[in-house]
Design a protein around this nucleic acid. Structure first.
Lengths: 196, 196
DNA sequence: CTCCTCATACCGACCAGACGGTATGGCGAG
DNA sequence: CTCGCCATACCGTCTGGTCGGTATGAGGAG
């Protein structure tokens, strides 16, 4: 008997395989073999392959949402809060790079109700983010000549794209990259400094 | 006999189905039924399902590369050329929104040699883009405190993300959005104006 | 301590069906 | 007759999921 849980091993193996081969191209046989368990054991903890994919999302989404709420709860000037939020979501996205890859690539493979649940949770995150931007706009810090949805998409596109180019083995540290991307974003949405 | 080509109908149907259901979840039966042809006819023009997916990529990549080369060939100040390139790639990405969705979501489903071919073509595009940035940096127009790969990823993330939020039925016209995103990007990479 | 009971954890052989792809043949045009 | 274009029937493979059964271990009764 192992101290490590079967469900954990299966999840870990599934993330790896889904990230490298894609969800549809990975059979449950491959997953259970990589995890060192049998199919019967897996289906004891997950009710379907779909459920396994959802469990991966679930863990990541919950963690990111918790971070967001904590940072906002700390309070402070909008600009600093927004900067902290941006840096954090980029950093955690780098920590969960394989999960993110799976997420954006295979979300649409989920069954309809699961997909709605994921969409709902993502929207909750985006809404809190949008509220921060709105506060900054009200204070005259951020430009208002571009629709807010475009500004928000402009940021999350960076987060999304990380899994397409960032390599943890590369030269750049994750914190540095997070700050660089955040800087690019904040620079682009701020009202021109010379006007003040 | 129809005046429209069988291959065209198949390609069109495949793009729609791949974009909505995903590549792996779409059977060739569904494709040929949606296209109004039979499987025998399809396999007369495409040697595999994989080949069909590649054909979709091929058309889009060729078109975008042709646009890029033409804009660069026109010459002019770096800042104007880069602006034109950005606006164009965003506009054509909106024109090919379903293809783009399929592209980014299913690229990894291709067989290894095909995948390498796609990667090679994308890199060619990125390299020309990088050369433009480098020219701008040499002229002191663009900031050099952030690694160039990060700047490039920062732009292509926007292009990539379009299929996740842009709706052609929405209020914003594609040209307007293209200019807004381009403006955000150029603002963020330019050296601060006050310094000049 | 022993025996019985029951629940949870897990095994692994086994489906039914869907899939991509092919073999064969019809058929109209030249 | 020949040769592309296409229709139809079919095949081998692999998939997600199931199901009858077993091992283990906790508790309750005597």
């Amino acid at each position: 008997m192992r101290d490590t849980n079967v469900a954990d091993e299966v999840t870990r193996a599934a993330v790896d395989l889904f990230a490298t081969q894609g969800y549809a191209n990975t059979s449950v046989q491959q997953i259970v073999e990589a995890a060192g368990v049998t199919k019967g054991a897996m289906y004891h903890y997950f009710e379907s392959k779909d459920d396994l994919l959802f469990a991966i999302y679930d863990r990541m989404l919950s963690l990111q949402k918790a971070h967001l709420d904590e940072i906002i709860a700390r309070g402070g000037p909008v600009d600093e809060v927004l900067r902290a939020v941006c840096v954090d979501v980029i950093e955690t996205s780098i920590d969960f790079l394989p999960e993110g890859t799976v997420f954006f690539r295979s979300m649409h493979m989920l069954t309809a109700p699961r997909q709605q649940e994921v969409t709902r949770r993502r929207r909750a995150y985006h809404d809190e983010f949008a509220a921060l931007i709105e506060r900054g706009q009200a204070e005259g810090l951020y430009r208002t000549d571009i629709p807010r949805p475009v500004l928000i998409a402009h940021f999350f596109s960076d987060v999304h794209y990380l899994s397409h180019w960032y390599s943890p083995h590369g030269a750049e540290g994750k914190t540095l990259v997070a700050e660089q991307i955040t800087d690019l974003f904040l620079t682009s949405i701020r009202t021109t400094d010379v006007a003040s």
